[in-house]
Simulated scan of single mutants.
Amino acid sequence: MKITSITAWQVDLPLKEGRYSWSNGNYMDVFDSTVVAIGTDEGITGYAESCPLGSAYLPSYALGVRSGLEELAPRLIGEDPTNLGAINRLMDDSLRGHPYIKAPIDIACWDILGKVTGQPVYALLGGAAQQSVALYRAISQEDPDAMAAKIAGYRAEGYTKFQLKVGGDANEDIERIRACRAILEPTDILVADANTGWTQHEAARVVGAVRDLDVYIEQPCMSYDECLSVRRRTALPFILDEVIGDVDGLMHGFADDAMDVINLKISKVGGLTKAKLIRDLCVARRIPMTIEDTWGGDIVTATIAHLARSTPEEFCFSATDFNSYVTQPIASGAPVREDGTMTAADRPGLGIDPMSNALGSPVLSFG
């Protein structure tokens, strides 16, 4: 089997709530997503999606996905998409870094491999380790009462895990955490995610002020060393996200006892091949993961569901149904939330079919 074409579409994904806000005054109203299709000489097509969270969250941006595809795609024509190791080595040799660009190529190849073998992607990733996956809901940064009210609404939809967007003014963040914890049940999970937004002294103040609460602290500061310093000042469970982007960073975190949980974002690490490696290392070291991505719609959500379903429940801290946050469907067959959980389809590949009317005309085409 050989790759004969690579095609990309640009899709806008407006938010149901109108705006998504996180640390340092960052926000998004509409997400810019890129859908990728890889065609083959056997008539099988694989699909994927890459959707950076703006340009101020990670070293990634939407136009970068499409620019990078222009660089990579011509070099992949004629390659075997089912040889995932060779595909990833070729991408790494052809373009240093930029994992978010490589991710949709890798994921579309997994989709092809599933279709060729007649298996869902979760089976290829290790098999079904759980039937359904518990979801968290991200709560956009607002005033404390508004955030608490949103949590109450989402609890009624079945969510029991909540990621609170903090990383603003430390005094207001302390109020946000206390207000939201107060309305939750004792069994509910609350994560205070600063998205690198606090300086070290602010983070120290916040963790000290909420030390009596049942709350996880996530990515308080910009650098790994700052986060490690805060980790050593608190007994609260600790999550790292932005600073864990590859195996080297993960191993460093293991050695330093830097975290209790990580956020494993599939496009941040370069796709399912590298995400599986990180997932398996975490399982071996008994470190749970939130399995997710930077953002996206139906195809990203399906990809998350397959990796999460193949992860033992004990180590799958939570996952994300990003397609429930946006107003624009782009594929049929995508996971649908049910009582705060979702599952991956049993159909071959990712189990999705892009909607041609939602994609419009391609913006890039090779082969």
Rank of each mutant, 00 (worst) to 15 (best):
L124A: 10
A235E: 13
R233V: 00
A123F: 01
Y159P: 04
I239H: 06
E172R: 15
A235H: 12
P186V: 02
Q131N: 14
A152E: 15
D214M: 03
V206S: 01
V191K: 01
E218S: 09
A152V: 08
A203M: 07
G127A: 12
Y159Q: 05
K150L: 09
A146G: 08
T160R: 15
A156N: 11
L236S: 02
E202P: 01
S223C: 04
S140G: 11
Q163S: 14
D188M: 04
R233Q: 15
D173G: 03
A156I: 03
I151D: 07
I189K: 12
Q200P: 00
Y224H: 10
Q141Y: 11
F238I: 02
V243W: 00
P144W: 09
V230C: 04
I151V: 15
Y159C: 09
V206R: 00
A156H: 09
A148E: 12
A204S: 13
A209F: 10
Y216T: 02
D145H: 12
A146W: 00
D188Q: 05
P220L: 03
V166I: 15
W198N: 09
A209T: 08
Q130C: 06
R181I: 03
I189P: 06
A138F: 09
Q219N: 11
N195V: 02
S140T: 15
R205D: 02
E185F: 06
N171P: 00
E185L: 13
Q130D: 11
Q163C: 12
L184C: 14
L125Y: 08
E218Y: 07
T187H: 12
M222I: 13
E142L: 14
R233F: 01
R233L: 15
V191W: 06
V230I: 15
V191H: 04
G126S: 11
G245E: 10
Q131S: 14
R211F: 05
P237R: 05
N195Y: 04
E172H: 11
W198V: 06
H201A: 13
D246K: 10
E218K: 04
F162Y: 14
A149I: 03
L135N: 01
D145V: 05
A123N: 12
G197W: 10
K161R: 14
E172F: 06
P237F: 05
V210H: 08
Q200W: 10
A146N: 12
L124V: 09
R211T: 13
S140D: 09
C180Q: 05
C180N: 11
V166Q: 01
D214H: 13
Y216A: 00
I151G: 06
R178V: 11
Q219E: 14
A128I: 06
A152Q: 15
D246M: 07
E175F: 01
L124C: 07
A128D: 07
E175M: 11
C180L: 08
G208I: 09
S229P: 00
T234I: 02
R178D: 02
K161V: 07
V210Y: 11
M147F: 02
A182Y: 05
V215P: 03
A194G: 06
C227M: 03
P220W: 07
G158Y: 02
A134P: 04
A148Y: 04
